[in-house]
Amino acid sequence: MKKAGKENRSDPGTGKCRLYFTRDYFRKKSRGLGKHLLLIFFSVLALFPIALIFMNSFKQKKFIFAHPFALPNAKTFSLVGYHTVIERSNLFVNFENSIIVTTVSLFFILLFGSMAAYALSGYRFKGNSFFTFYLAIGIMIPIRLGTASLLKLMSSLGLVNTLTGLILIYIAQGLPLTIFILSNFMAQIPGELKDAGRIDGASEYRIYWLVLPLVRPALGAIGIFTMVPIWNDLWFPLIIAPSAKTATITLGVQQFLGQFVSDWNAVLSALVMAVVPILLLYLFFSRQMIKSVTSGALKA
């Protein structure tokens, strides 16, 4: 790209560009190749650490060190790490907890968030600007800074070491961005639609219910920016709900890694088991997610 630019004789001094017929077929072709090479380089960089862990988790210990870059084969194959993880860890309970926490949080984030976004984007009323601003503060200020008092609050509500405590925090944490994204989407919905509903005598609640399916494209963006951080959070599980019964997968893996730090097979297998579900989910939804993000959900 750089090279091609150099050969273009434009006049940077005046800022005026003139037409040169120098970009022939071959240069275009090679530039396309260069772009691909760059993209391939960065993609490999993104993929390689995960692939490395994945490959080596299926090898016997001595081959992990001896040939880290070799694919497992009949001679080096071993599942001992997975056996250790399944026997010694709580990962299945952790999975269950993570799934409960994430889905329940997401459900309420979407429900409460879409209700608030509907009110803020669909009606002009006194205090609209105030509520819009008030609910947006949380996008910038991390909830973590309130950990000290959250902990006290949770313990006075008797919600420490419960998934409910975690869920409530995640709902509060997820709402600001969700409301922001959904408001943007809902503002794009043509007013005629709602007016038509009103003429038919539908209640405002009914109209909300009609509008709701129309923001489906925004779900991908919310998934990426709200759900993934909940699934991956270490902080609140560590502080609010660290017990064995309530530990989420991220905390469970962290503790397992701490305990089995010198058992390489177990460590690699645990990493793979923690990575695979979220990766599958991502690969499955990535097109939708990215489309949703790029469709203008985050336009300021």
């Binding site: 209700m115 608030a116 800074l145 000290a148 959250l150 409530l168 509060a172 709402l175 600001p176």
Partner: peptide, 16 residues
């Protein structure tokens, strides 16, 4: 939204 957000986000921040 406002109640949940105020109770579990704004209040802890102010309390801190």
């Amino acid at each position: 939204a406002v109640i949940c957000y105020t109770l579990f986000m704004i209040y802890p921040l102010i309390e801190s």
